[in-house]
Design a protein around this nucleic acid. Sequence first.
DNA 1: ACCCAGGTGGCCC
DNA 2: GGGCCACATGGG
Length: 225
Amino acid sequence: MSGPSQRLLHLYHTLLRAFGPQHWWPGESAFEMMVGAILTQSVAWTNVEKAILNLKASGVLSPQALREIAIERLAELVRPSGYYRAKAAKIKALVEHLDGYGDDLDRFFDKDLDDLRTELLGIHGVGEETADAIILYAAEKPTFVIDAYTVRILDRLDLSPASPWYGAYKAWLEQHLPGDAGMFNEYHALLVRLGKDFCKKTPNCTPCPLLSLCPTGQARATAIL
DNA sequence: ACCCAGGTGGCCC
DNA sequence: GGGCCACATGGG
Protein backbone atom coordinates (compact mmCIF):
# COMPACT_ATOMS: atom_id res chain seq x y z
CA MET A 1 0.00 0.00 0.00
CA SER A 2 1.33 3.35 -0.89
CA GLY A 3 0.43 6.71 0.64
CA PRO A 4 0.25 10.19 -0.82
CA SER A 5 3.99 10.81 -0.41
CA GLN A 6 4.96 7.76 -2.42
CA ARG A 7 2.38 8.42 -5.08
CA LEU A 8 3.32 12.09 -5.40
CA LEU A 9 6.99 11.19 -5.69
CA HIS A 10 6.18 8.53 -8.25
CA LEU A 11 4.19 11.05 -10.27
CA TYR A 12 7.10 13.48 -10.11
CA HIS A 13 9.65 10.96 -11.31
CA THR A 14 7.33 9.72 -14.02
CA LEU A 15 6.86 13.22 -15.39
CA LEU A 16 10.55 14.04 -15.11
CA ARG A 17 11.45 10.88 -16.97
CA ALA A 18 8.86 11.63 -19.65
CA PHE A 19 9.58 15.31 -20.21
CA GLY A 20 12.97 16.08 -18.68
CA PRO A 21 13.79 19.29 -16.77
CA GLN A 22 11.64 22.26 -17.82
CA HIS A 23 14.06 25.05 -16.81
CA TRP A 24 11.40 27.33 -15.40
CA TRP A 25 10.42 30.18 -15.06
CA PRO A 26 10.69 31.42 -18.65
CA GLY A 27 12.39 34.80 -18.33
CA GLU A 28 15.83 36.34 -18.20
CA SER A 29 15.59 38.06 -14.84
CA ALA A 30 13.71 37.90 -11.57
CA PHE A 31 11.87 41.09 -12.46
CA GLU A 32 10.82 39.72 -15.85
CA MET A 33 9.46 36.67 -14.05
CA MET A 34 7.39 38.86 -11.75
CA VAL A 35 5.89 40.76 -14.65
CA GLY A 36 5.29 37.49 -16.50
CA ALA A 37 3.54 36.07 -13.45
CA ILE A 38 1.00 38.89 -13.58
CA LEU A 39 0.61 38.83 -17.34
CA THR A 40 -0.02 35.09 -17.47
CA GLN A 41 -3.07 35.27 -15.21
CA SER A 42 -5.81 33.26 -16.89
CA VAL A 43 -4.17 33.57 -20.29
CA ALA A 44 -2.11 31.36 -22.59
CA TRP A 45 1.63 31.90 -22.26
CA THR A 46 1.98 32.56 -26.00
CA ASN A 47 0.00 35.77 -25.44
CA VAL A 48 2.32 36.76 -22.62
CA GLU A 49 5.38 36.33 -24.82
CA LYS A 50 4.07 38.93 -27.22
CA ALA A 51 3.44 41.38 -24.40
CA ILE A 52 6.90 40.85 -22.87
CA LEU A 53 8.44 41.31 -26.30
CA ASN A 54 6.61 44.63 -26.64
CA LEU A 55 7.91 45.77 -23.26
CA LYS A 56 11.47 44.83 -24.17
CA ALA A 57 11.28 46.42 -27.62
CA SER A 58 10.13 49.65 -25.97
CA GLY A 59 12.89 49.41 -23.40
CA VAL A 60 10.51 49.61 -20.46
CA LEU A 61 11.01 46.23 -18.81
CA SER A 62 12.41 47.72 -15.63
CA PRO A 63 10.70 48.93 -12.46
CA GLN A 64 11.66 52.55 -12.98
CA ALA A 65 10.65 52.69 -16.65
CA LEU A 66 7.34 51.05 -15.81
CA ARG A 67 6.69 53.64 -13.11
CA GLU A 68 7.41 56.44 -15.54
CA ILE A 69 5.42 55.20 -18.53
CA ALA A 70 1.82 56.39 -18.88
CA ILE A 71 -0.59 53.67 -17.87
CA GLU A 72 -2.49 54.01 -21.15
CA ARG A 73 0.72 53.35 -23.09
CA LEU A 74 1.60 50.44 -20.84
CA ALA A 75 -1.85 49.01 -21.47
CA GLU A 76 -1.27 49.14 -25.23
CA LEU A 77 2.05 47.32 -24.87
CA VAL A 78 0.59 44.47 -22.81
CA ARG A 79 -2.56 44.29 -24.91
CA PRO A 80 -1.78 40.84 -26.39
CA SER A 81 -1.91 39.29 -22.94
CA GLY A 82 -5.59 40.07 -22.50
CA TYR A 83 -7.28 41.99 -19.66
CA TYR A 84 -4.77 44.57 -20.70
CA ARG A 85 -6.13 47.58 -18.83
CA ALA A 86 -6.49 45.57 -15.63
CA LYS A 87 -3.01 44.12 -16.02
CA ALA A 88 -1.45 47.51 -16.68
CA ALA A 89 -2.85 48.67 -13.33
CA LYS A 90 -1.49 45.54 -11.64
CA ILE A 91 2.00 46.09 -13.05
CA LYS A 92 1.86 49.69 -11.87
CA ALA A 93 0.96 48.50 -8.36
CA LEU A 94 3.89 46.08 -8.39
CA VAL A 95 6.51 48.61 -9.45
CA GLU A 96 5.14 51.20 -7.03
CA HIS A 97 5.68 48.68 -4.27
CA LEU A 98 9.22 47.95 -5.43
CA ASP A 99 9.97 51.67 -5.28
CA GLY A 100 9.90 51.24 -1.52
CA TYR A 101 12.94 48.99 -1.88
CA GLY A 102 14.84 51.19 -4.32
CA ASP A 103 14.00 48.55 -6.95
CA ASP A 104 16.40 46.19 -5.19
CA LEU A 105 14.79 42.76 -5.56
CA ASP A 106 17.34 41.06 -3.35
CA ARG A 107 16.36 43.39 -0.55
CA PHE A 108 12.67 42.86 -1.26
CA PHE A 109 13.08 39.09 -1.16
CA ASP A 110 15.35 39.05 1.88
CA LYS A 111 12.77 38.12 4.47
CA ASP A 112 10.96 35.12 5.86
CA LEU A 113 8.92 33.27 3.24
CA ASP A 114 5.62 33.84 5.03
CA ASP A 115 6.34 37.54 5.50
CA LEU A 116 7.21 37.88 1.82
CA ARG A 117 4.02 36.04 0.89
CA THR A 118 1.85 38.27 3.05
CA GLU A 119 3.51 41.35 1.61
CA LEU A 120 3.01 40.15 -1.96
CA LEU A 121 -0.65 39.41 -1.30
CA GLY A 122 -1.05 43.02 -0.23
CA ILE A 123 -0.11 44.24 -3.70
CA HIS A 124 -3.08 44.86 -6.00
CA GLY A 125 -3.25 42.13 -8.61
CA VAL A 126 -1.14 39.61 -6.73
CA GLY A 127 -3.24 36.69 -5.54
CA GLU A 128 -2.12 33.39 -4.09
CA GLU A 129 -0.88 31.75 -7.26
CA THR A 130 0.97 34.81 -8.49
CA ALA A 131 2.52 35.33 -5.04
CA ASP A 132 3.71 31.73 -4.92
CA ALA A 133 5.06 31.88 -8.47
CA ILE A 134 7.09 34.95 -7.54
CA ILE A 135 8.31 33.38 -4.29
CA LEU A 136 9.32 30.13 -5.95
CA TYR A 137 10.68 31.24 -9.30
CA ALA A 138 11.95 34.78 -8.68
CA ALA A 139 12.89 34.63 -4.98
CA GLU A 140 13.74 30.92 -5.17
CA LYS A 141 12.15 30.06 -1.85
CA PRO A 142 10.29 26.74 -1.31
CA THR A 143 6.57 27.27 -1.83
CA PHE A 144 4.36 25.10 -4.04
CA VAL A 145 2.46 26.89 -6.81
CA ILE A 146 -1.09 25.65 -7.32
CA ASP A 147 -2.70 26.35 -10.65
CA ALA A 148 -5.68 25.04 -12.58
CA TYR A 149 -3.64 22.26 -14.21
CA THR A 150 -2.27 21.10 -10.87
CA VAL A 151 -5.75 20.87 -9.38
CA ARG A 152 -7.24 19.03 -12.34
CA ILE A 153 -4.42 16.53 -12.66
CA LEU A 154 -4.28 15.75 -8.94
CA ASP A 155 -8.06 15.45 -8.78
CA ARG A 156 -8.08 13.08 -11.73
CA LEU A 157 -5.45 10.91 -10.06
CA ASP A 158 -7.37 10.95 -6.80
CA LEU A 159 -4.35 12.60 -5.20
CA SER A 160 -6.14 15.60 -3.76
CA PRO A 161 -6.58 17.01 -0.26
CA ALA A 162 -9.94 16.84 1.49
CA SER A 163 -10.75 20.52 0.97
CA PRO A 164 -10.79 22.10 -2.48
CA TRP A 165 -9.16 25.39 -1.40
CA TYR A 166 -5.93 26.73 -2.82
CA GLY A 167 -4.30 26.54 0.61
CA ALA A 168 -5.34 22.93 1.08
CA TYR A 169 -3.66 21.82 -2.16
CA LYS A 170 -0.56 23.79 -1.28
CA ALA A 171 -0.34 22.37 2.24
CA TRP A 172 -1.09 18.87 0.95
CA LEU A 173 1.80 18.95 -1.50
CA GLU A 174 4.26 20.63 0.82
CA GLN A 175 3.36 18.19 3.58
CA HIS A 176 3.90 15.11 1.46
CA LEU A 177 7.02 16.18 -0.39
CA PRO A 178 10.54 17.14 0.67
CA GLY A 179 10.54 20.93 1.14
CA ASP A 180 13.02 21.57 -1.61
CA ALA A 181 12.64 24.68 -3.78
CA GLY A 182 14.36 23.00 -6.73
CA MET A 183 11.90 20.15 -6.67
CA PHE A 184 8.83 22.37 -6.22
CA ASN A 185 10.11 24.38 -9.17
CA GLU A 186 10.43 21.37 -11.41
CA TYR A 187 7.29 19.65 -10.20
CA HIS A 188 4.97 22.55 -10.93
CA ALA A 189 6.57 23.14 -14.31
CA LEU A 190 6.12 19.47 -15.21
CA LEU A 191 2.43 19.52 -14.25
CA VAL A 192 1.86 22.51 -16.50
CA ARG A 193 3.85 20.86 -19.28
CA LEU A 194 1.65 17.79 -19.02
CA GLY A 195 -1.53 19.80 -19.06
CA LYS A 196 -0.56 22.29 -21.74
CA ASP A 197 1.81 20.81 -24.26
CA PHE A 198 0.89 17.17 -24.04
CA CYS A 199 -2.66 16.45 -23.04
CA LYS A 200 -4.50 18.99 -25.12
CA LYS A 201 -2.55 18.31 -28.27
CA THR A 202 -2.55 14.54 -28.19
CA PRO A 203 -6.05 13.12 -28.31
CA ASN A 204 -6.05 9.64 -26.81
CA CYS A 205 -2.41 10.16 -25.98
CA THR A 206 -1.26 6.57 -25.97
CA PRO A 207 2.11 7.28 -24.41
CA CYS A 208 0.51 9.33 -21.66
CA PRO A 209 3.01 9.26 -18.79
CA LEU A 210 0.17 9.06 -16.30
CA LEU A 211 -1.29 5.84 -17.58
CA SER A 212 0.36 3.67 -14.95
CA LEU A 213 -0.66 6.05 -12.17
CA CYS A 214 -4.34 6.50 -12.83
CA PRO A 215 -6.51 4.42 -10.48
CA THR A 216 -9.20 3.90 -13.08
CA GLY A 217 -6.79 3.44 -15.95
CA GLN A 218 -8.36 6.36 -17.75
CA ALA A 219 -5.47 8.77 -17.56
CA ARG A 220 -5.78 9.77 -21.16
CA ALA A 221 -5.25 13.45 -20.92
CA THR A 222 -8.45 14.28 -22.71
CA ALA A 223 -10.14 12.69 -19.75
CA ILE A 224 -7.99 14.58 -17.27
CA LEU A 225 -8.44 17.94 -18.88
C1' DA B 1 -18.51 30.61 -34.41
C1' DC B 2 -17.28 28.87 -30.21
C1' DC B 3 -14.22 27.66 -26.32
C1' DC B 4 -10.61 28.19 -23.37
C1' DA B 5 -5.99 29.71 -21.62
C1' DG B 6 -0.28 28.78 -15.92
C1' DG B 7 -6.28 34.38 -11.84
C1' DT B 8 -7.76 38.39 -9.27
C1' DG B 9 -10.63 41.89 -7.17
C1' DG B 10 -15.08 43.78 -6.30
C1' DC B 11 -19.58 43.23 -4.93
C1' DC B 12 -23.47 40.79 -2.88
C1' DC B 13 -25.57 38.14 0.58
C1' DG C 1 -16.66 32.86 3.56
C1' DG C 2 -18.81 31.44 -0.66
C1' DG C 3 -21.01 32.51 -5.23
C1' DC C 4 -21.01 35.57 -9.27
C1' DC C 5 -19.12 38.64 -12.45
C1' DA C 6 -15.96 41.74 -15.17
C1' DC C 7 -11.67 41.86 -17.08
C1' DA C 8 -10.03 40.83 -23.14
C1' DT C 9 -6.67 38.87 -26.53
C1' DG C 10 -5.25 35.05 -29.53
C1' DG C 11 -5.08 30.21 -31.06
C1' DG C 12 -7.36 25.76 -31.92
